[in-house]
Amino acid sequence: MTRPRADLLLELADDELILGWRDSEWTGIAPFLEEDVAFSSIAQNEIGHARALYELAARDLGTDADALAFDRPIAEYRCAPLVQLRRLEWARTIARHWLYETADAVRIEALKDSDDVEVAGLAGKIEREETYHRLHAEMWIERLLAAPEGRTRLEEALLELWPYALGVLEGELRETFAARVRERLPFGLPEVEAIPRDRHEPELAELLDEMTIVRRSAPVGAQW
């Protein structure tokens, strides 16, 4: 890894934070109670991972996790467009969840092999929770694929999100990810251009605005 590690950590942290917020938009309105609790819990876990990643990055950058999460100008957020999208529709939410978890697994596996013991250690901790997120995503995919309506809706959602999903990873990792996704599905996904990480969807500005409202309204130095 030639890039500074804070760079890489921020990329990951931003992905987890923004996806956590997007997933939490289902809290209270998920299709049924049990799923509401489960999905909200996953959202909370993602934000927990973001916090741990920001803390590690903050040490390198001489700041703190909250400042990294909430005080940066929008242009500095490195989250992939896949997690920025506001998709309050269940098939797309599940499709994104599964695509993200599959990509994240590839990324975390690579980080666990990192020479940097702190990064490798944190990746290992994150991985232990992500295992359950993957099981959750996988059971939904299996269920949707089992019925014609579910399959159609999943296929539509995956086609729409595919270029975004490819943008989560680069190079060899992207290839590994694409191969895993294709291997799992009974239908094909097209060869498309990946939507790169530096693109900001219009929804991101709205989300950051909402996400930082309490922080901006509190006096500097407020303790929580």
Binding site: L33, E34, V37, L135, E138
Partner: peptide
């Protein structure tokens, strides 16, 4: 709780 099958029951 309600769950459609065993994998969902496991998760919930």
């Amino acid at each position: 709780f309600h769950a459609p099958d065993r994998p969902f029951a496991d998760a919930y």
